[in-house]
Design a protein around this nucleic acid. Structure first.
Lengths: 115, 115
DNA sequence: CATCTATGTTGACACACATCGAACCAAGGC
DNA sequence: GCCTTGGTTCGATGTGTGTCAACATAGATG
């Protein structure tokens, strides 16, 4: 399965020019990872955890079964937004800060003055 | 001109705390609107057009049929990212800047120093 | 009114996705 | 070894979504 490797340079801001098909594909993949309420909650739980990481056991009370939680965490990981690491009994998830910055840059564009 | 207020008081930054179910629902809905490559291209085409608006005829060469373009523009409009207006023969789409800012704020969080 | 052009809508289809239970794997303690 | 706890993968199922062809609508023009 292909993962997003070089997500950092992804795309110019959405307000700069019409994205190419490839750029749009990459941008859409990042947005898609956060297009589900459960994934948004899981991601914010990890991102806001002290130290920027959290184990699955601490964030799995989001209203769905535990296999479903694992499924969504896997999707976030495949999209490059999270990384996981097993330490003994527990698996810890951490945010990948560069991807967050890339998405923010996509949206927080310096708007042209003539608008 | 309205000053900066919470036009779309969607949610706190994703890194601040675990979002509630309702907040996550709203955030996911915005991300979902941009989770398709065609919609990303259409949105960037409108956002980057001179004057911040474009008519459908100028942005409909994104590789899909015209009804599909119309379908995606409708979704972007329902999500609140675009507004449309008919002027004579053509329909013009404009970006809704407050929503863009809300999404940016969601991602561009002031990261705690200890990361 | 007739006709043409530019958009939007409808219906149908294939594919993707979210969800769950059950089975499975990995570590640690007995 | 066996058992328990934490986590992932598998299989199935219902729902959602992207796409297009066909049809409908709205203005402009003759």
């Amino acid at each position: 399965m292909l993962e997003l490797e070089a997500v950092v340079p992804c795309c110019p801001p959405l307000t700069e020019r019409t994205l190419t098909a490839e750029e749009a594909e990459r941008a859409a993949a990042m947005f898609k990872a956060l297009s589900d309420p459960v994934r948004v909650r899981l991601f914010s739980a990890v991102a806001s955890a002290p130290g920027g990481e959290a184990c699955v056991c601490d964030i799995s009370d989001v209203g769905v079964s535990q296999p479903t939680v694992s499924h969504h965490l896997k999707k976030l990981k495949e999209a490059g937004l999270l990384v996981s690491e097993r330490r003994g009994t527990w698996v810890y998830y951490r945010v990948e800060p560069s991807v967050l910055a890339a998405m923010g840059r996509l949206l927080m564009a310096p708007l042209p003055a003539d608008r």
